[in-house]
Amino acid sequence: MSPQADRGSVRIENVSIIFGDNTAESLALADAGKSRSEIQEITGDVLGVHDCTVDINEGEILVLMGLSGSGKSTLLRAVNRLNPISRGTLTVNCGDETFDVGECDDKLLKQLRMDTVSMVFQQFGLLPWRSVADNVGFGLEISGVPKKERDQRVTEQLELVGLSDWADRMVAELSGGMQQRVGLARAFATGAPILLMDEPFSALDPLIRSRLQDELLELQARLGKTIVFVSHDLDEAMKLGNRIAIMEGGRIIQCGTPREIVNSPTNDYVADFVAHMNPIAMLTARDVMAQGKPDNTRGQLPLSASVTPDTPLSDVMDALSKRDGTIGVIDKGVVTGSITSSDIVRGLTQHRR
């Protein structure tokens, strides 16, 4: 498979994972609504995930979000069968190829892991005795890619992540953020259309972490990978995810866009999750504006500036900071709403109600 030759998608359908020797009994207890601790007490087994269903579409970032022990990493590692599938179906599609992951023999599983699904770990997994370039090309090397092609692809990926000048340095000479970029370059170098990222930035300090999040979004805009990203940080999930699947006790509690989850939490668990998050990154003018044409009842006229409904809230706030007053929201040449500082405050706090 040539690099970036195809797009990939994943379908997870009613997948359960049990660690232990009493799978049938443990699944029956999970189906009956028993908790992870209850199942472990009765059978000695550990419920990894239970009855999880979600589609990951071509070119999107799906974030698996939850507290420690919620099952998010367990589900992620089922995609390339680092964790076994006890029940259900997990299908990976790439071009004309379809992998039923749970049924793959050793040959197909190796093909899946080499060509279709690549992984970035939290602890980087770099080889300290190798140079940066040799680390990036390691997956290609064990796949048998000829050296000339391997060197070309390594050069392209190092340029992509801004590490061309560090190609011959040892990885121990790099900062944590730069090492994580080496991990990204290694994953991208294989050309695999599906990327699994297991809390890749959680060990980094906040400034580097935010920078790498921005860089990942920039790379994604250029490459269009299908990414499954595990995080326990809601702000990170809201920033990166096209959709977010919130997990608790091995189960997917809610899956939707950041806006859907913030505006319509499915239960108290999700509501508590979003109560203290910073919604600025996901809100637009449409989310906070007062509907209808501006008038003088709120002292709205004249307008100090105008935006479109899809203008990011951060840009609206910037406009108001420069010129106090009322922002007009214009859609297709017609003023359809208005925004004052009070509207912004209400929009930023409405998810806490």
Rank of each mutant, 00 (worst) to 15 (best):
R7L: 07
V10L: 03
A24N: 12
E25F: 04
E25G: 05
S26V: 01
L27G: 01
A32L: 13
K34P: 00
S35N: 05
R36N: 11
T43K: 09
D45R: 05
V49I: 15
C52L: 11
V54C: 01
G59F: 06
S68R: 06
K72P: 02
L75T: 02
L75W: 00
P84R: 05
I85L: 00
N93C: 14
F99Y: 15
E103Q: 14
D115K: 09
D115A: 10
F121L: 14
Q122E: 08
G125K: 02
E141H: 07
G144V: 12
Q157H: 09
A167H: 06
R169Y: 03
M170T: 13
M170Q: 11
R186K: 11
I194K: 00
P200K: 03
L204E: 05
L212P: 03
L217M: 15
G224K: 07
D233G: 12
K239M: 15
M247D: 04
E248R: 13
G256C: 13
A271F: 06
A275D: 13
H276D: 10
A281M: 12
A285T: 13
R286H: 12
G292T: 12
L303S: 07
T311M: 08
M317C: 15
A319P: 06
A319K: 15
I327R: 01
G328T: 06
V329R: 10
G337Q: 02
S341F: 04
I344L: 07
R352S: 10
R352E: 05
